[in-house]
Each structure stands twice: as structure tokens, then as C-alpha cells.
């Protein structure tokens, strides 16, 4: 019936066990971040005694080894260390530090995720290294997006979420990007970045250097402004942000004109931005 189907039985891999222990760490501190810093050892103790009540006889395997593991770590690092931000080992990070030590700006850990902020200059070289290195093989670019921090000197962060299909590891990369700066495109390394970067351009206005097709993707070509910037309004009067460019001439914008007949019409104005299409 299913002649060409090859069913693979994936055995549990190494990464599997690792994540479980990471989650255990988090679990132990679970109530701490929202709760309080009053007294961590007493706070964790009732939590731990409450936990064994809930696991039923059917699934003792997963929750029970977790409970003994969790209380051992919080008392050790009780007042300061937050297990959510505890460093986790990462082979990729070690390799980057080894080969491109001067390119790493910052490393952050959160919930056993590793995020490395890189300088823009040799970013493409590092990407290729991460993709092609036989020990790392980050061949799968899961996601590209950006975050707008208007108060920072370099207001944009471009975020890359990498995954390795063979080693099952994840790694997050970041590039800082100033207004008007053009970070290098990742689409030459991972073709999937093409649409992701178009979306970042569309919604944040970051242009990627060397991108084959830097056009809007979700908004219309005529749209003015980049909606995911923090200064872009969520809602408001139409004339505040309902502007469309005439892309056929790229010389004019059409502004929503409330004063025209029945308050519905488009007024043509000379475009001031000079921002061409794509």
C-alpha cells in the first residue's frame, strides 16, 4: 500500500536527555521569578513536597527524577543565580570564540538558549563557518526577525535562529544595526532568508546588503512606513498614517484627504522621502 515510504524509527537522541535536565533546573525555580525573593529554600521546599502528590502511578518516569534534581541546585545558588539565565554549554559558541574571538560582542543565556551577538563585519564568514563546519552543521535557518529598540544608539537588532538537523542543536545569533545601515544578507548562505529578510525590510525598514529582491512582501508596494517600528502607531486617524505611494511614477504620494467630497478621496502630493521602490 505504501510502496515508497520509508518509516524511520528515531531513537531518542543525545539532545533529548540534555533538554530534560535543563528543564529540571527551570522547574525548581519555577515559582521564584513571579513569586518573591523572601526565602528561597523554604519557598522551594513546599513546592517540592507538593510535586510528588500530583504524579500519578502511570507516569512516574519523567516527573519523579526531576523532583530530586531540582532542589539540589536552588539551595546551592540560592540568592543570586537565576536558573533561567544560567549559562549552558554550547559547542558552537566555543568554536565561534575560538575562531572569531574578536567578533563576539555579547553572549546571553535564557531558558537554556544561547544567543551570541556578533559584529557585522565578518558575519557572513561566521555564518558559512557555522553552516559548513562538520562538527556544527547549522544547515537550517529557522527564523530571521528584528527587534526595534528606539532608545539605543543602534536601534535595531536582527535575530537569526539557527538549527542543526544532524546534531539537533539550536543557536541564536544577533547583529546590531543602526538606522540606515545595511547588514549583510543571509540569503547567500541560507536561501530561506530571502523572504524572512523581505519581511524584516517591509516591517522594520532594514535593507539587507546584497539581497536579490529587496521589496515589500506583506504590505502593499505603495505603503509608506514600517509598521513594526515602535514609533509607528497601532491605531489612529487615517490621515496620520494612511499614506500610499504611487509606485508607477515613484514621484508622488497619495494622502488620504478628509476635506474632499464626503470625506473620502486621495490627495496627490509630491513625495519628500525619495525612497524608491525596493
Amino acid at each position: 500500500m505504501r510502496p515508497r515510504l520509508l518509516v524511520k524509527k528515531s531513537a531518542s537522541d543525545g539532545r533529548n536527555g540534555q533538554t530534560v535536565t535543563d528543564e529540571n533546573d527551570i522547574k525548581g525555580e519555577g515559582p521564584a521569578p513571579p513569586g518573591d525573593a523572601s526565602g528561597t529554600p523554604p519557598a522551594t521546599a513546599p513546592e517540592q513536597s507538593a510535586a510528588p502528590k500530583t504524579p500519578p502511578p502511570a507516569t512516574p518516569a519523567a516527573p519523579k527524577p526531576a523532583a530530586p534534581a531540582a532542589p539540589s541546585s536552588p539551595p546551592a545558588a540560592a540568592p543570586k543565580a537565576n536558573p533561567l539565565t544560567a549559562p549552558v554549554p554550547s559547542a558552537a559558541l566555543d568554536r565561534i570564540r575560538e575562531k572569531f574571538s574578536d567578533q563576539v560582542i555579547e553572549v546571553t543565556y535564557y531558558a537554556s538558549e544561547v544567543t551570541v551577538k556578533l559584529k557585522q563585519e565578518r558575519a557572513e564568514e561566521i555564518w558559512r563557518f557555522l553552516r559548513d563546519d562538520p562538527g556544527l552543521r547549522f544547515d537550517y535557518l529557522s527564523n530571521v526577525t528584528a527587534v526595534h529598540w528606539p532608545e539605543r544608539p543602534k536601534p535595531f537588532e536582527v535575530v537569526y535562529h539557527l538549527f542543526s538537523i544532524s546534531t539537533r542543536q539550536r543557536l541564536n545569533l544577533k547583529l546590531d544595526c543602526g538606522e540606515g545601515e545595511q547588514p549583510p544578507t543571509a540569503s547567500r548562505v541560507w536561501p530561506t532568508a530571502n523572504w524572512h529578510e523581505r519581511e524584516v525590510f517591509d516591517l522594520f525598514g532594514i535593507r539587507f546588503h546584497g539581497h536579490p529582491d529587496m521589496t515589500r512582501i506583506l504590505m502593499t508596494d505603495e505603503w509608506v512606513g514600517h509598521p513594526l517600528r515602535k514609533d509607528y502607531p497601532l491605531e489612529g486617524k487615517p490621515e496620520d498614517h494612511m499614506q500610499l505611494r504611487d509606485v508607477t511614477t515613484a514621484e508622488h504620494v497619495y494622502t488620504y484627504d478628509k476635506s474632499s467630497i464626503k470625506g473620502f478621496g486621495w490627495k496627490k502630493e509630491v513625495e519628500k522621502t525619495g525612497e524608491g521602490r525596493g
Binding site: 515510504l5 528515531s10 539532545r15 530534560v20 519523567a62 538537523i165
Partner: peptide, 17 residues
């Protein structure tokens, strides 16, 4: 690859073409 919820407790196959 990265079991979430409690998928690691269940036995199932991943079909591949």
C-alpha cells in the same frame, strides 16, 4: 528532535519520504 509538552513519553515513528 526537541520534545516539548510530554512528547518524549510517547512511542511513535516519524514517516519520511
Amino acid at each position: 528532535a526537541q520534545p516539548y509538552s510530554s512528547y518524549d513519553q510517547f512511542d511513535f515513528d516519524v514517516p519520511v519520504g
